[in-house]
Design a protein around this nucleic acid. Structure first.
Lengths: 69, 69
DNA sequence: TTACTTTGTCAAGTATATTTTACAATTTTC
DNA sequence: GAAAATTGTAAAATATACTTGACAAAGTAA
């Protein structure tokens, strides 16, 4: 799976560490790291929590228009 | 968790059965049923597959503006 | 009615998301 | 340069997404 650079840069834009985001979303820092690095396939609830913590929507962070497959 | 009526009606609008959608998304009919009924928390990859099969985006089917929490 | 399709649900199993603990590498700050 | 904070990663354990097989309830059509 590909890295999620949109997430990584949205977090950077708020000057928030992985650990801060992890606390706000109720998961572990390692989980946030794994999501950013595309190491796995998070649940929709986690994705929604991340979006709310960063002031973004699902389409902003987890939707890729190109990959039409 | 709440039922996903947006998904249910998007599927109905295409006159597609749960089984058809299941085949297109590569999961079981029971899984589609569970997602529609809010019985659990699907992965983002499954949500994206469902959106592509129905010609919708994540925000269309899996984002609720109200629940600001 | 009878046959057929669609949907809800349940129990038991498998696959994998997420946690915990831990350590090393890198970056930032002093 | 050293100290502190941030990040990548890995192994083992736990929680839960998803499958398989099956049955009943409801809807649609003959």
């Amino acid at each position: 799976m590909a890295k999620n650079l949109k997430l990584k840069s949205a977090r950077a834009a708020l000057d928030m560490s992985q650990e801060e985001l992890a606390k706000k979303t109720g998961v572990t820092r390692q989980t946030i790291s794994a999501v950013e690095n595309g190491d796995y396939n998070p649940t929709i609830n986690l994705c929604v929590s991340i979006c709310r913590a960063l002031g973004k929507t699902l389409d902003d962070l987890f939707w890729n228009e190109e990959e039409t497959k």
